[in-house]
Amino acid sequence: MRALFVYLSLGLMFAVTETLVPSAMFVKPNLLLLLVLTLGLREKVILGGPLSWLLGGLQDALSGASLGLFGLVYLILYLTVRSIAGPLNSESPILLLFLVFSSTLLQGLILIFTLGFLAEHGTYWRQVLTVIPGQLLVNLLAGLLFLQCSSMLSRYRRHR
């Protein structure tokens, strides 16, 4: 229950932060994706599945997407990461960066298919493809920052 509360609070904070980034920046870091990846590496499906859908719902509520779009995308991403997380070293910082890179690409692909097949707005695929290179860079930078913050937090907890 505590984990659910912590993840949701962090998700809400991240989603609100994303809305404060001016659109003049062209691409915004996808902070919720980092949380979904952390869920995929650490939490079991019983908690991680609904949580990743809820995080997607948060993203939908604070963006122009129809409710459920990012919920579906994040759930697929979570399940993909969860399915390969077993043999991986979840503490490795390089692994998180690699996952950020590959899941940004995968997210773009899922978005194109979802919007293309399920919604009637036909031209989103062009925008998704245009945004992907910048999105990769910004997400990797956000991933690095996330790693720094989490290592600082764990050091602080060890000291206490």
Binding site: T19, L20, S23, K28, S63, G64, L111, Y124
Partner: peptide, 13 residues
Amino acid sequence: IAEDATSLFQTVI
């Protein structure tokens, strides 16, 4: 008061 949470959609609040 706020903008879209994603880079994909163009909305404001």
